[in-house]
Structure formats: structure tokens, C-alpha cells
């Protein structure tokens, strides 16, 4: 793959005695949408967090756009500017308004003037359907609204890859749709995305590739129709039986 966005080889991560990632090889092409699925504790979120070094790998190599993220000499702040991340619990900055949440990084990092950042924030809020919330405090928003602001905040740095860590798991069911809509829009625009989710519908519809993980290894991967309709591995079958029957 010539235009490789993410290239991970033999990645290991341990928390104390707990060996969470066991020699992962994982690649993502430009403009690809990859969905990570698997039972909880399988290491999906940890793998995602290794992509922007929120977790430092125990061993192995992680590169993004050819930059060695796992090397401590790499300027990680600079690398992160191009890697957007969306969290399960939104993590909006509680001391700032919605608008300030979105403007903070571009202004502080000298990417945009205050005026330009404000204009951009309003535009991004419009694309996630929240143009009237510019002056609101995060505490006044619903979970779905918060998550859409969080996506807008990540987009404000104009990243070329977006990481989603169970973005809808903390939401009430009726809020999930709005957030998925925004993610679909992004995917259609060609954003490279790595998504950890339990939303199998989203995976089927939007993923270029589905990766099934269990116990810290990649068990099976492939096009969604292959993985969902013709799983090869017993563990994949068992997992899919459970989640799809629910």
C-alpha cells in the first residue's frame, strides 16, 4: 500500500502484568474507514489510544503518515495536531463555552486568528447541526449534542485522520442517530477514520474494513459483508451471535 496512513507492526502494550496488546500488526490506507469490534477487554480502545500515544507502546512501532509515533523523540504535540480524537465521554472542556472549546486549539497553537477561529467554529457547528449552541456551556447540552461538539472540536484542527473511541456508548439510544449521521458525513467526505464501536449497523454500512479483536490480538478482518455474513473464526461467530441477537 503506497498511501499508507497508519502502519503498526508488532505492537505490544502491558499495564503491569496485564498484557493487553499482543503483537498487533495493523494498517490503514488513506481515506479508509476501519471499524474495530470485539468483546470488552479485547484491547480495541488501547490500540486506538496507541495511535496518538495517549498510551505509550511497551514495544513495537506505530507510524502515522510515516512519522514514528512510538519514538519518544518525535514531537508528539505536532503529530497530534493531525490526528483528531473523539472520546466515549466527550471530554468537552467544562470551563469553556461550546465556541471556546472549538477555538481553543487552533488559536493557542497559532493556526488561526481569533476571528478566523470563531468563523470556523460556527461553520463546524453548522455542519454538526448545532449552530445555535455557540455560546452555550457544555453542561447545558445533551449527550448527543456534546458528542457532536466534540467532533467539531477535533475537526477544528483540520486533521487528516479521526479516531473514535466508542463515540455512542455513553449516549441515550435516541441520541445515537445524530452522532452517527455526522460520522457518516465525514466518511463520505473521504476522512480516514478508525472507529471503535458496538454499532454494527454503522460498521456494515460505512466500514471499508472490519477488524475483530479478542484477547489482544486481531482474530479476523475483512470487508464488512465477509466478516458479518461469513465469519471464519469461531470466536468471531460467537461474538457476532451475541451482539446481533441483542
Amino acid at each position: 500500500m503506497a498511501n499508507l496512513k497508519v502502519d503498526i507492526s508488532d505492537l505490544n502494550k502491558s499495564f503491569g502484568d496485564n498484557h493487553v496488546l499482543k503483537g498487533i500488526d495493523f494498517k490503514v490506507a488513506n481515506n479508509e474507514v476501519v471499524v474495530l469490534i470485539g468483546p470488552s477487554g479485547s484491547g480495541k480502545s488501547t490500540l486506538l489510544r496507541c495511535l496518538n500515544r495517549l498510551e505509550a507502546p511497551t514495544s513495537g512501532k506505530v507510524s502515522i503518515d510515516g512519522k514514528d509515533i512510538s519514538n519518544t523523540k518525535t514531537n508528539i504535540d505536532q503529530a497530534r495536531e493531525n490526528i483528531g480524537m473523539v472520546f466515549q465521554h466527550f471530554n468537552l472542556f467544562n470551563n469553556l463555552t461550546v465556541g471556546q472549546n472549538i477555538e481553543l486549539a487552533p488559536v493557542e497553537l497559532g493556526k488561526l486568528s481569533k476571528e478566523d477561529a470563531a468563523a470556523q467554529a460556527k461553520k463546524l457547528l453548522a455542519t454538526v447541526g448545532l449552530e445555535d449552541k455557540y455560546d452555550a456551556k457544555p453542561q447545558s447540552l445533551s449527550g448527543g449534542q456534546k458528542q457532536r461538539v466534540a467532533i467539531a472540536r477535533a475537526l477544528a484542527m483540520n486533521p487528516d485522520i479521526m479516531l473514535f473511541d466508542e463515540p455512542t456508548s455513553a449516549l441515550d439510544p435516541e441520541m445515537v442517530g445524530d452522532v452517527l449521521e455526522v460520522m457518516k458525513k465525514l466518511a463520505k467526505e473521504g476522512m480516514t477514520m478508525v472507529v471503535v464501536t458496538h454499532e454494527m449497523g454503522f460498521a456494515k454500512e460505512m466500514a471499508d474494513r472490519v477488524v475483530f479483536m479478542a484477547d489482544g490480538v486481531v482474530v479476523e478482518e475483512g470487508k464488512p459483508e465477509d466478516v458479518f455474513d461469513h465469519p471464519q473464526n469461531e470466536r468471531t461467530k460467537a461474538f457476532l451471535d451475541k451482539v446481533i441477537n441483542v
Binding site: E81, M85, F87, L92, A105, A154
Partner: peptide, 8 residues
């Protein structure tokens, strides 16, 4: 984490 992930 959110602040750092933005590159701050």
C-alpha cells in the same frame, strides 16, 4: 487527554 489529543 482531550486537550493533549488536540496537540496542546
Amino acid at each position: 487527554e482531550a486537550a493533549r489529543s488536540l496537540g496542546l
